[in-house]
Design a protein around this nucleic acid. Structure first.
Lengths: 334, 334
DNA sequence: ATGAAAGCGCTAACAA
DNA sequence: TTGTTAGCGCTTTCAT
């Protein structure tokens, strides 16, 4: 591998000049720049990442901690990751993959200077990793909002607004008796922010609109979905609008609807909240609020970069939800 | 951050001794070792990754190139990744995430010495990345087998055997008229190894057992699945055994079966090939061949490590498939 | 069993 | 506008 000295020699300049051509941190005459750039290309020169990191104390790597626990929505995870990686590349950074269960990962990566910053996904209300993150010298960004986000930067979908929007979509169509099939009881028990805020937004908005919104926690799988739907049909006969905030249960819900002969949207209107392409496992697409995974990942990277550039205090950014009509909402039958 | 000199000073030894305590590359007296280790713990010392990489020309990082194109089975991707990451950690390595569309990723990572080796997923028959990989100084391992694997190391499920096994599972139960709902036409056209070999194994085994096996390419989505199943029912009335090798189409297939009133396994037996937890989007679990994503990822890392240790030539390792009975196969009706 | 010292390849003062 | 030089923190030979 060619080194910076090889390039310098071949181009007839000093090593620092090559370095400055690459970094743009000081003016270079057009002639020199041209010559150096040609040499770099000819030799196929690439700075040694380690040497650069050592000298500049910047690795140009950001670490990303991804959850791999079961019952998680892999679809959306991949979207986040894709967003993070592509945004990072756009800022000339690479991404180091950490997993949730690698408990010492944050410390290791931080204190060995492998990464300049850390993005952590799937944050719980009382996340165990928060203390470690707070005491880091590197900046970090959380995807998800803990109950105490002080001193930390967070991004997430605005789930309160999403709850409101989902309900409003139904009440605007004329529905007054709604049911929310939401996250699992376990998620609510652990006060998972997204589950709790979604529910809060939905119930508040329902109240505001003079509507009724029952909430059913639901296991994140097919059987959970069918079970929840059975309960709605059997115990809440007046319900004409359904909000489903549980991608893994959604196939179960839809299948049960069909089996019970309930038509969508003629008999029941459905609004889904989840990854954009959840519909692929379904017979039909649903009107819904697509969690913009890629966008959120992108924003996380922007926040990281801002912090690395010395701008930006810790703050929480909530991305506004949008509803995409796909024909599963209509006026209730009279 | 504490440096190796800080540790050396505090422990009253030289920096090289600290280094050797850490690497175990030369004998250290128990007393010294003890003292140094205590100091390391007290100071929370961690070697600077860049400095280490610079001095040793080893980054302890392996790069993993992950596909993000649509129509891919995210489930299985995540399993591979999980397997790779955990195996890498077991070998004291971290994982750098590269994406398919980052075309220069391989070169960048290799020639900047960011990674000691590269694992590439989702290999096509005539993969464009092969030349770059062949000319690398770092070792690489492909997940998937190209049409010409010479000079490269590959791991994959043995799809030929999987095809055979799926068919044999059905013929052993007494079925003689089978249909294989496989990958999309586009995959076959590009001669994707897994699709082609799976089909070959299935048809060979069918012939061997005196059975008949129709092959239907199928779009990787719900509609594709229903369409393929409709064709089976309408154009191949004698079929009693179904092999589905297309996870994204599987929900469509199962839903269409139910809608047409075809019972599983009473009327038709079904064998599925795919990610272990594909069943979560389905009403019922299916007898099937679970692609052992984590295992394959793990094997890829083992192969990488072997190459880094100077053992191991390039070779292809095919992991043997197993069938897991889940009650969707029975003897055909008489 | 341990230490001293020479790099590894780069960046960023400091000089000119 | 460019060059010289002193590290960055570690590994590893060479000495002892």
């Amino acid at each position: 591998m060619a080194t910076i000295d090889d390039v310098a020699k071949a181009a007839g300049v000093s090593a620092s000049t090559v370095s400055y051509v690459l970094s743009g941190k000081r003016p270079i005459s057009p002639r020199t720049r041209e010559r150096v750039e040609r040499t770099i290309r000819d030799l196929g020169y690439r700075p040694h990442a380690g040497a650069r990191a050592l000298a500049s104390s910047r690795s140009n790597v950001i670490a990303l901690m991804v959850p791999f626990r079961p019952g998680i929505n892999v679809q959306i995870i991949m979207q986040f990751v894709a967003g993070v990686v592509s945004a990072a590349r756009a800022h000339d950074h690479d991404v180091l993959l950490l997993t949730q269960d690698d408990s010492s990962g944050v410390d290791r990566v931080a204190s060995s200077s492998m990464a300049d910053a850390i993005i952590v996904m799937d944050i719980e209300a009382e996340d165990e990793r928060l203390p470690a993150l707070r005491s880091l010298k590197q900046p970090s960004v959380l995807i998800g909002v803990p109950s105490d986000p002080s001193g930390l930067s967070c991004v997430d979908l605005d789930f309160t607004a999403a709850g409101r929007l989902a309900v409003r979509t139904l009440t605007d169509a004329g529905h007054r008796r709604l049911a929310l099939i939401g996250a699992s009881q376990e998620r609510f028990d652990r006060r998972a922010n997204y589950a709790v805020r979604m529910r809060a937004g939905a119930t508040e908005e329902a109240e505001l609109r003079g509507a009724d919104c029952a909430v059913l926690p639901c296991e994140p799988n097919f059987a959970g979905g069918t079970a929840a739907l059975e309960r709605v049909l059997d115990e809440m006969p007046g319900v004409t609008g359904l909000v489903v905030h549980n991608e893994l249960a959604l196939p179960g819900v839809m299948s049960a609807l069909e089996r019970r002969g309930v038509r969508v949207p003629e008999d029941i209107s459905v609004v889904a909240i989840g990854a954009a392409d959840t519909g692929t496992a379904l017979a039909r697409e649903l009107t819904g609020i697509d969690v913009p995974g890629e966008d959120i990942g992108r924003v996380a990277v922007e926040m990281v970069m801002a912090q690395l550039d010395g701008e930006a205090l810790s703050s929480t950014r909530l991305v506004s939800p949008d509803v995409t009509p796909r024909g599963s909402v209509a006026a209730p039958a009279v």
